[in-house]
Write a protein that binds this DNA or RNA. Structure first.
Lengths: 336, 336
DNA sequence: GAAGGCTTTGCAACCGATTGCACAAAGGAG
DNA sequence: CTCCTTTGTGCAATCGGTTGCAAAGCCTTC
């Protein structure tokens, strides 16, 4: 079949005997056209498998229908952000797809903010989803200064208004701790991520609140911090076992650290969960395959991704600034 | 400063007192212009932080300088492709960046090939990098039929010519097995991925070759297959321990399966590596953090990503079909 | 039967780049 | 002092859409 030559709306126009404008309107479902004409034109377009030219459309509309997923470059040293980033990317991608947006992935150098000009100034993307773990504040500041549209994963910290989405960290910490208390644990430790991060602080507050409500005290010997990495989880756990030998439970701020912590516990001759119960955070896909399967706080990551996409698009279209907190859920498996 | 209004080459043209064409030529380093003029124009462009409009350029050049990273939608069930995909994406991204290309991520339904039209027909992307694990052949066939430019990760299988890149699976299998033989192991098992995959078959051949060269026989009781997933690794390992109780080493086709296998070995009251030595495959970031740290065959994934990018771009520009095999390397840690 | 109002469609300008071709200026040859 | 190259620059068309405005057709209404 010689249908090959149908690549522009002008071709369709000729085939249907109307003008370019009419074809354009038909394809965009303009109310100016009669249903009949629209139908006729669309039928032809479908028949010839017409695909509109994206760059031309973007040029005309001054809008790319593309957003950039901004993340730091991946490196050998394995942090929670990696797996987490992968999972959330799937959610974002599907959320954007539903809104007819494409996703460009931009790996940035944490030191450098020139990517903002590079992608926004050129009309390549309409907005950003920020996932970089380090120096996030620095990037947020730059985006705000340039008036670039964006949404960030994590609790909002600047006084300025911008879109954000984060998990309910307070409830997460509380839920985990309550579960351990309910299981009859007496010496419940908190193994957090970097103390300076808002998320970690909120989880700690939840931990504290649960203990207080149960009439328990917070003991400094039961508090330790890592940096979300595997190794730091093992180290912090060792520290806890040393400083509080009678520890019988631990709430860990990430699944990755929790898995490392469980290894450390075993290396110290204790059993999980018999001697020490462990609750993780995130419910990454590895959580259910760990040994033993990890009890953890689930953040619905795919859903979070979809919401990031949806809220950003909403902001682009209406200027609505959203700061959403997504619910968390306790998933009970074998480790606690 | 009122530099805000400099957004098009026409603005630059006015500022420098030349025509749009001259500005365009200067920015593209055309040989038609004198160095002096080019310098002068570039200086102005730099001064005003001019960013060229991408859609306009794309429309004019009929080329988007964007490629699509095509992968299946991520789902809960954790396969090697996930982590592997993440790591290789980083390499691809940086490789494309070096070639001045952007990376669009497209999550596709394995059943559906309409994404090809959707992205190629619209001029949104210039080519594809195919990573989907299942139904890969189906997608390759569709791409070939439509004459779409692409490169795939994995050994080429069709009789048709297309670009590909894959690890040296034969050498990988051989290296791993030789290492185990060299360590004095006598009953060396092969725990593979799906038997029908070319990669797995090649690794098996390498395993076989190493045994043969050492004057050893291949025993069917020492062969098992999983599907690259965590759980399948544990199951297959159990099967091996049952069918060959005297097994003292195992070459596993993926790090994820290997880690699960090590757990299974311990659950059966044996020690790693003392009783059973384990060699994995891929050297994912988790390999060095496993317990014990995993001896494994490294594929240089970031480099593979860069090569995928580079070779695809080369194909786009010159039509050169490349089928590259990247070297592998034995990384000795504690598990064997 | 003419005027006015709707609805439907087309013309042409515009979005911001690239590039073939024409033309102007400068240098060299006769 | 002309004429011819050679080199450097600008004009205007083009890429493929979108959209403000004008116009054409049709139906009412007086």
């Amino acid at each position: 079949m010689a249908k090959k030559s149908v690549h522009t709306i002008a071709d369709i126009a000729e085939l249907t005997g109307v003008s370019k404008s009419t074809v354009s309107r038909a394809l965009n479902d303009s109310p100016l056209l009669s249903e009949e004409t629209k139908e006729r034109i669309r039928a032809v377009a479908k028949k010839y498998d017409f695909q509109i030219n994206a760059p031309a459309r973007q040029l005309s509309l001054k809008q790319s229908n593309t957003i950039a997923f901004v993340t730091h470059a991946y490196h050998k040293d394995f942090s929670v952000a990696d797996l987490f980033g992968l999972e959330i990317m799937g959610g974002i991608s599907s959320g954007l797809y539903a809104e007819h947006y494409d996703m460009l992935v931009v790996h940035v150098d944490p030191q450098d903010t020139s990517w903002i000009h590079q992608y926004l100034g050129t009309g390549r993307v309409d907005g950003f989803i920020l996932m970089t773990s380090t120096r996030k504040q620095y990037h947020i500041k730059a985006l705000l200064e340039l008036g670039a549209p964006f949404i960030v994963w994590g609790a909002p910290t600047s006084s300025k208004k911008y879109c954000s989405l984060c998990g309910d960290n307070f409830s997460g910490g509380k839920l985990a701790t309550e579960h351990l208390i309910g299981a009859g644990r007496k010496q419940i430790a908190f193994l957090g991520g970097p103390a300076e991060e808002v998320e970690v602080e909120q989880r700690y507050k939840g931990y504290e609140a649960a203990l207080r409500e149960a009439g328990k005290k917070v003991s400094p010997a039961l508090i330790a911090h890592g940096d979300f990495s595997n190794t730091s989880g093992a180290e912090a756990m060792q520290q806890l076992l040393d400083s509080a030998p009678d520890v019988d439970a631990v709430f860990v701020n990430s699944d990755l650290m929790a898995i490392a912590a469980m290894d450390t516990i075993r290396e110290n001759g204790r059993r999980v969960p018999d001697d020490v119960a462990v609750v993780g955070y995130d419910d990454l896909s590895i959580a259910e395959h760990s040994n033993p399967p990890l009890t953890t706080i689930r953040q619905d990551i795919p859903m979070a991704g979809k919401l990031l996409a949806k809220n950003l698009v909403q902001y682009l279209q209406t200027g609505n600034v959203t700061n959403t907190v997504t619910p968390v859920e306790l998933i009970v498996r074998k480790s606690a």
